[in-house]
Computed example of a mutant assay.
Amino acid sequence: MAEVNLETLTERALDLWQINGRDTPLPGVFLAVSKEPTGPLHGVYQPSLCVVLQGAKVSRVGHRTYRYDAGKCLIASLDVPVRAEIVAASREHPYIAMIVSIDPAVVTELLIDHPPTSSEAETTPEALAVSTLSSDLIDPLERLLGLAKRPRDIPVVAPMIQREIIWQLLNGSHAGSLRQVGLTDSRLARIGKSIAWVRENFTEVLSVPYLAALAGMSQATFHRQFKAATAMTPMQFQKSLRLQEARRMLLSEGVDVAQVGFTIGYESPSQFSREYRRMFGASPGRDGVQLRRALTEETHS
C-alpha cells in the first residue's frame, strides 16, 4: 500500500488544537497533542477511530499490546479499559492524533442498506485493531476538520462525512470488527451488551451467569468469547473499571481513601490498596497526592 500524505491533515489538526484544545467544535471529533512522551495513561476507549498523524502511541488491553505511529490508525469496536502511553513525541515533533467516534447505530444502518456480499466467519474479533491508514480516508478526514471554519455547515455536513468515514472502514481491512458491532445478534454485539452492563454497574457484585444470559450464551462460551474480545476475564474487566473510577475520585482534595474503596465496591480496604498499587504503581493516598500536584503544576505552567 502506498504511503499516504498526512501533511494537510496534520496542519489542520494542529491549527484546530491550538484554537480549541482537545475538544473540537465538531461533534464526536477530538484531538490529542503531546510535546513529550507520557507515563501510563488509564482510560476507557469507546467505539472510535484514532488516526496518528505524528509520533507514536502504545495501548495495552490485558496482555495485548498495540503500537501505532504516523500513518497508522487504531479502531476500537468495544468499550474497553486501556493502559496507554505516548512513546514518541518532542517539542519539535509533537505527538498528534485525531479521534473520531463511531456510532454503532450508523454501522447498523449501513449494513441494512448495503449488506456484506459474503458471509463472515462467526468469530469474535479483538476489541482493538491497528492498521495502515487507507488513502480513501484522507479526503473525508480533511473535509471533516475543514468544517471547523464553517460552523453553519457543521450540523448538516459533519454527520454525512462521519457516515462516509464509517462506510470506508466497513470496506477496509478491519471491516469484520465493525460489522460485528452493527449486527445485533453477532457475538461481539452480544458481548458488548454484557460490557455495557458492567460499565453501568461496576460497583455491584459480578454475576457471570447473569452476564452470560444477557449475552445469550452458555457460561463457558461467554467466558471464552469475552476474553477473546477484551483479553480479560469479566472479573478483571470490572476491577479495571473500579480502579480507574477510584483514581478519578482521588483527584478530589481531602477525599477519604477507605471511603473511595467502599464506594467503588471493595469491602476490604487492604485489598483495595493492594490492587490499586498493583495497577498504578503507588498506594491510593500517595497516588492521589501526586495526581493533584501534577494537575496543579499543569494548570500553572
Rank of each mutant, 00 (worst) to 15 (best):
M1S: 15
M1W: 14
A2Y: 09
V4Q: 14
E7N: 11
T10G: 03
R12T: 05
A13M: 13
A13N: 08
G21N: 07
T24H: 02
L26W: 07
L26A: 07
G28K: 01
G39H: 08
L41G: 08
H42D: 01
V44Y: 00
Q46M: 12
P47E: 03
K57N: 12
K57Y: 00
S59Q: 04
Y66K: 12
Y66F: 14
D69T: 11
C73Y: 15
L74I: 06
V80A: 10
A84P: 13
S90I: 00
R91M: 10
P94G: 11
A97K: 00
A97V: 02
M98K: 15
I99C: 01
V100T: 09
V100F: 07
I102H: 06
D103Y: 11
P104N: 05
P104C: 01
A105W: 00
V107M: 03
V107T: 13
T108L: 09
L111C: 10
L111I: 14
L111T: 06
H114T: 15
P116G: 08
S119C: 09
T123C: 11
T124M: 14
E126H: 15
L128P: 11
V130I: 12
S134T: 08
S134E: 11
L137V: 11
L137I: 04
I138Q: 11
I138G: 14
D139E: 15
D139A: 14
P140W: 01
L141N: 07
L144W: 08
L145N: 01
L145M: 06
G146T: 12
L147E: 04
K149L: 09
R150V: 15
P151H: 04
I161S: 00
I165P: 13
W167Q: 10
W167R: 15
L169K: 06
G172N: 07
A175M: 01
R179W: 02
V181T: 11
T184P: 15
S186M: 12
S186W: 15
R187D: 01
I191R: 13
G192A: 08
I195T: 13
R199N: 05
R199I: 03
E204Q: 13
L206H: 09
S207R: 07
S207H: 05
P209M: 03
P209Q: 10
A213V: 00
A213Y: 09
G216V: 05
F226E: 09
A231S: 13
A231F: 04
K239I: 06
L243S: 04
E245W: 03
M249N: 14
L251M: 09
E253Q: 12
G254T: 02
A258M: 13
A258Q: 14
E267H: 12
P269S: 03
F280C: 04
G281N: 03
G285W: 06
D287S: 06
G288P: 06
V289I: 11
S301D: 12
